[in-house]
Design a protein around this nucleic acid. Structure first.
Length: 545
DNA sequence: TCTGCCACGTC
DNA sequence: CGACGTGGCAG
């Protein structure tokens, strides 16, 4: 349904949506050219437009509240929406250029968690992730003007633990599944996750111009990661504080709010059997579990916000030209360097942000300012990645990729459009960061790593990879290609945006290959690591078991 | 641990 | 009104 998101829209436009506009214009810019912005940095034109792109997380404060406690997202067979919803404000796009906005959720690390004693802790190694699925925003492809006009909401995305359903719709329950499908040509899908595993949502902005067609060599895209949106997937809430936050903030859970009256009523009904004091349930629970702050700071397993850098934004820009993919993802291990942040992050936030609590690092300066809610993370980095580097990853990555692919995908061998497009890869890098760097050898990775954690895969890679075809060269590519398959651009285009008619090429992200890193043993070569950008940002979450 | 069903809310 | 989104709870 529509969602209209909330109204905040930034600028809003009432009509909003409208458009998708015409495509007509898009072309003008073609790559570089015109657009003006010069690339700043290094990059080639590819990025051109990507450099100035900024993405602000909407309602960051709310996200931070959850994050501080240790965000949990329910996953069900039928698919459950995330709450808080992932909504962003995007600026810096070329109004006439078309872009595809998509989201994915990648493993934040390779651990399995358990919740005991009011806190999360690592219990073991993560299960191999399934192939990741991409959730392409229904408006894609659309012009920069369209995306910037109002908040871009990914609230319809659903998380599921149903590995069997390739399409993201679940037959079992019936409800949701179908709806999905029908809605947009199947674009929407549910993202499959494993319970008790930590994940990091990411948003990717892919230029859909002809020039950048996926297939083409230069697909420009950038990835933004908001560490504060990381969460642990669960089939039922573990931490009562989270339950409480959900109830208090999610309109659909209003029925569970303790307003006295209601509570009483409810209680009586539901629990007729039990008797209860008057306390609202929530309250009750609360107390019980409450953890006060299990996580806070450190919590082991979870991330703590504070530490995190949420603030950073990370981004990756990739270009895909050939080989580039870069980032493999490495798995979750810590990479040595991660610079991710640096590069990418620019952060700003604070102002807006603050959640009040800690201040997270706000290292960066920018601030944006204007918008309130959104915090943004800049992204851009100039860099494009070069694909080059990618080559290395290949092996490991490949394998991994394959594995994943196979496993999960099993269901869908070749994906049909849908699949492909939507599901595809999995990548890993959570935090990642900016991958921009790509290849570079280590240097780039400044990050620190906390220990370990993630690897990140980069989407970029995939995108860049796009080249899946394109750049076969790298070993990776292949793999990627395999699973990822080939997404073709078209696919995306079609499915997702029917209307749009995108030129095919552009549309698709196909190429992306993200690999997955996680499960893998760290085989990645150093290079890979570099590429990865991962950043691990959150120490807390890190593993520690 | 996960699933199904429920009441209750939003849209 | 009906479809759908929520968490609780029983199984």
């Amino acid at each position: 349904m529509a969602d209209q998101e909330e109204t905040f829209a930034i600028q809003n436009s009432p009509g909003g949506s409208d458009s998708r506009e015409l495509q007509s214009d898009n072309k003008p810019e073609k790559q570089n050219g015109t657009s003006g912005k010069s690339p700043s940095s290094q990059t080639t034109y590819i990025q051109q437009g990507m450099e100035g792109i900024k993405v602000y997380l909407h309602e960051r404060e709310l996200w931070m509240k959850f994050h501080e406690v240790g965000t949990e997202m329910i996953i069900t067979k039928a698919g459950r929406r995330m709450f808080p919803s992932f909504k962003v404000k995007v600026t810096g796009l070329n109004p006439k250029t078309k872009y595809i906005l998509l989201m994915d959720v990648v493993p934040a690390d390779d651990h399995r968690y358990k919740f005991a004693d009011n806190k999360w802790s690592v219990t073991g190694k993560a299960e191999p992730a399934m192939p990741g699925r991409l959730y392409v925003h229904p408006d894609s492809p659309a012009t920069g003007a369209h995306w910037m006009r109002q908040l871009v909401s990914f609230q319809k995305l659903k998380l599921t633990n149903n590995h069997l359903d390739p399409f993201g719709h679940d037959a079992s329950t019936g409800r949701s599944g179908q709806a999905f499908i029908s809605s947009h040509a199947g674009c929407e899908r549910q993202i499959i996750l494993n319970s008790m595993h930590k994940y990091q949502p990411r948003i990717h902005i892919v230029k859909a111009d002809e020039n950048n067609g996926f297939g083409s060599k230069n697909t420009a895209f950038c990835t933004h990661v908001f560490p504060e949106t990381a969460f642990i997937a669960v089939t039922s809430y573990q931490n009562h504080k989270i339950t409480q936050l959900k109830i208090e903030n999610n309109p659909f859970a209003k029925g569970f709010r303790g307003s006295d009256d209601m509570e009483l009523h409810r209680m009586s009904r539901m629990q007729s059997t039990k008797e209860y004091p008057v306390v609202p349930r929530s309250t009750v629970r609360h107390r019980v579990g409450s953890s006060h702050s299990p996580f806070n700071g450190e919590v082991q397993g979870m991330a703590t916000p504070s530490t995190m850098s949420s603030q950073y934004s990370q981004c990756e820009n990739g270009v895909s030209s050939t080989s580039q993919d870069m980032l493999p993802q490495s798995s979750s291990y810590p990479l040595p360097h991660e610079h991710g942040q640096e590069y990418c992050i620019k952060r700003k936030v604070d102002d807006d942000c603050h959640s009040g609590e800690h201040s997270y690092k706000k290292p960066y300066l920018e601030s944006s300012s204007s918008e309130e809610d959104h915090y943004y993370r800049p992204v851009g980095y100039p860099q494009s990645l070069s694909l080059t580097s990618a080559p290395y990853r290949s092996e490991s990555s490949q394998r991994q990729a394959c594995m994943y692919a196979s496993s999960s995908q099993g269901a869908e061998p070749v994906p049909s459009l849908e699949d492909i497009s939507c599901n595809t890869w999995a990548s890993v890098s959570p935090y990642g960061s900016c991958s921009v760097t790509t290849m570079q050898p280590m240097e780039r990775l400044p990050y620190q790593h906390f220990s370990a954690h993630f690897a990140s895969g980069s989407l970029v890679s995939r995108l860049g990879g796009v080249g899946g075809h394109a750049s076969p060269q790298l070993g990776e590519s292949h793999h990627t290609a395999m699973y990822q398959s080939s997404m073709t651009h078209q696919t995306l285009g079609r499915q997702c945006s029917p209307g749009a008619g995108i030129q095919s090429p552009t549309a698709g992200l196909q190429g992306n290959e993200y690999l997955y890193a996680h499960g893998i043993p760290r085989t990645l070569s150093p290079h890979q690591y570099h590429s990865v950008h991962s950043v691990s940002i959150m120490p807390e979450w890190s593993e520690n078991s």
